[in-house]
Design a protein around this nucleic acid. Structure first.
Length: 632
DNA sequence: ACCGCAGTAAAAA
DNA sequence: GTATTTTTTTACTGCGGT
């Protein structure tokens, strides 16, 4: 494991070969692109910048990782190799037994989604190279632009160099959400429980449709794509397979690809299995399992019941500054934005993570876990400020805040006195009785396994099913648990679909929606959506800026957010006791917890702070190298 | 030895 | 002339408490 001298010699005739970015990789519609030229221009536009320097650091880190892994590999004795091969073969057999070929999955991906939507609302863009995004970053490029090597995730100023006549269109998420909803209405007809992966991607279990109508997956795919086109004027691609992985193979990115190829010489699924022993020797159990599954072509075939959001975050890039007042202002802005987002979903969280990107593009994060769930802008800012303060002085180009640790997180954490669960439990119960604006409840209300587990100890963790649970599930699937999305991407699965997007486009189907009137339709849909999502279910006895509890008249200032919440919870507990005589035991347990909670939460904070900043808690990249070397 | 937490990284859209 | 995003999830590692 000595020597790391494998690097290139002094003068490199083609230095751009050593600079690899995601956005120099080919995408759909980039077949004839002069890759050499694109790489050279990307390199020349990038070199010397802070960003570039950081990329070099990351590259160096990756090379080190690969060296380390090579050394590990070389250290394996013949006995080790045969041992791990046996382990791998056994694992392969085990995994094989999980194969399920009984389902038919469809992965649908809109073609150049944002760009296509923009063209729909401004047909004069048709046929011209165009990108959605800014000079800083491109979200999507249309196919005309891709011929120049312009791609999602590429900075706009580089794209303009590659294609000087490139037209830039700013992102307009309202528009994309509107069209996304139209596509989802179609998806729903084929699979009411379809899984949205982003605004422009979804997985559909079309097994039942195929069976009932006696058609193949491919035929359903064709029909669905036609219907999507009819409803939206947008084209899409679809992959058909017995599981989701095969309908869209993913999960191996730049770094993993290098580790597999450069260390183990793995390029294909077959090689993944042949070299299974090395995978088991070098990677963790879960990573090795994943790789072997990919090699076997195994993937998810189930439709997981409600998936819960685990975190919510907001971040902004700005021109780098070390002006503390300015940084605090940015932080306050982010805190407010996060608070707004959390309110939309009625979330409260315990763990707050501050994300920083320094002027040199180094990314750091700092987190606190509180005893209490918080959601107000003031409180978020209060704790975020403490986290930021510990990093000063510092020059930053990005600040972000993330809230997580929402509720129970892990079912079966009996010691954790999660006071929010009471509120959510009650609210969820109520939601089954009355409907709010046609929809009953929110994702975060739908399951509270820790609570259930605590109080209804006879339920196994995984099998909590009752009527309101499934009604929640239905609700959620209406919203499809879609999370953030910015950069749209077409993937290799296009090769799996027989009919290309272009074929469909050429069939001259009528355009149902032209440009022009879309914005009004938009508004309507968005408003509808917000009505569904907005947390007007909150049973707060306080109005937003009221000092008095409407139920008992006790006075508390609005900024006593935790105290007010607890007070609300108290009334909820009472209410629960009245309404639910059959679950008296639970109530008393919960009230007991509630009382405890009130005590523990008043002791302010466990301030045993991290050694934190400069050369304290986090290592420089160089230091990290030393460290990881010592591990082997 | 195990658990929870903090920090970093990778991946995806 | 300048300029390299945003959001979420998952995995792994190391530390400190019990």
């Amino acid at each position: 494991m000595e020597k790391s001298e494998t690097t290139s010699s002094g003068e490199n005739p083609r230095p751009w070969h050593s600079y690899h970015t995601v956005y120099t990789n080919a995408k759909a519609g980039m077949e004839g692109v002069d890759k050499e030229k694109v790489q050279r221009i990307v390199y020349e536009m990038s070199k010397g910048s802070k960003y570039f320097e950081n990329e070099e650091k990351k590259e160096a880190y990756m090379r080190q990782k690969i060296e380390t892994m090579r050394a590990q590999c070389a250290k394996l004795t013949a006995a080790d190799v045969s041992h791990y091969q046996m382990v791998a073969d056994k694992r392969i057999v085990e995994l094989e037994t999980t194969r399920d070929l009984s389902r038919i999955w469809l992965h649908v991906d809109m073609d150049a989604f944002y760009a296509a939507v923009e063209t729909l609302s401004n047909p004069s863009l048709t046929g011209k190279p165009m990108a959605v995004g800014s000079m800083s970053m491109i979200s999507t490029a249309n196919y005309e632009a891709r011929k120049f090597g312009v791609r999602a995730a590429m900075p706009g100023f580089i794209a303009r160099k590659l294609c000087p006549e490139l037209i830039f269109v700013p992102t307009d998420f309202n528009k994309y959400t509107h069209y996304s909803n139209l596509t989802r209405k179609v998806f729903q007809k084929y699979d009411p429980h379809f899984m949205a992966a982003s605004l422009d991607e979804a997985y559909l279990d079309i097994t039942d449709v195929c069976k009932e109508r006696g058609v193949t997956g491919g035929e359903v795919a064709d029909e669905l794509r036609t219907r999507v086109y009819e409803e939206t004027g947008l084209t899409c691609s679809a992959g058909v397979a017995p599981n989701r992985l095969l309908a869209k193979i993913g999960g191996i990115g730049k770094v993993t690809e290098h580790m597999l190829r450069d260390v183990l010489g793995i390029n294909t699924c077959e090689e993944m299995l042949q070299k299974g022993g090395f995978l088991c020797a070098l990677f963790s159990r879960s990573s090795a399992d994943f790789f072997l599954s990919v090699g076997l072509g195994l993937g998810g075939t189930d439709t997981p019941e409600v998936k819960f959001r685990k975190s919510i975050s907001n971040e902004r890039t700005f021109s780098a500054t070390d002006d503390e007042a300015l940084l605090y202002q940015k932080l306050a802005d982010i805190a407010q934005m996060l608070c707004t987002d959390m309110q939309k979903e009625g979330l409260r969280g315990r763990t707050l993570t501050l994300k920083l990107k320094t002027a040199s593009f180094e990314v750091r994060s700092r987190a606190v876990t509180l005893q209490k769930y918080i959601c107000s802008g003031e409180e978020i800012l209060k704790y975020a400020s403490k986290l930021l303060k510990a990093e000063l002085p510092i020059s930053l180009r990005l600040i972000g805040l993330r809230m997580s640790h929402f509720n129970e997180d892990k079912a079966g954490a009996p010691s954790d006195p999660t006071q929010r669960t009471l509120t959510k439990f009650v609210l969820s119960r109520d939601a089954s009785g009355k409907t709010m604006g046609g929809q009953s409840s929110l994702s975060s209300n739908c399951s509270d396994e820790a609570f259930m587990d605590d109080l209804e100890t006879s339920f196994p963790n995984d099998e909590i099913r009752d009527p309101w649970d499934s009604s929640c599930k239905q609700d959620l699937e209406d919203h499809n648990c879609t999370f953030g999305n910015n950069i749209e991407a077409e993937e290799a699965h296009e090769s799996l679909s027989n009919n290309t997007a272009e074929n469909i486009a050429e069939t001259s189907l009528p355009r149902k929606l032209g440009g022009g009137s879309t914005d009004m339709v938009n508004e309507e849909v968005i408003l509808h959506n917000e009505a569904v999502i907005s947390p007007d279910w909150q049973y707060q006895c306080f109005k937003a800026d009221d000092y008095k509890c409407s139920l008992c008249g006790i006075e508390m200032p609005p900024d006593f957010v935790e105290e007010r919440q607890e007070h609300s919870d108290f009334h909820l507990a009472e209410r629960l006791q009245e309404k639910e005589s059959s679950i008296n035991s639970r109530t008393s347990i919960e009230r007991h917890r509630f009382a405890q909670k009130a005590i523990t939460s008043s002791r302010s904070s466990r301030k045993k702070h991290k050694p934190s900043p400069k050369q304290g808690s986090h290592l420089s990249i160089d230091m990290y190298f030393v460290k990881s070397n010592q591990n082997f």
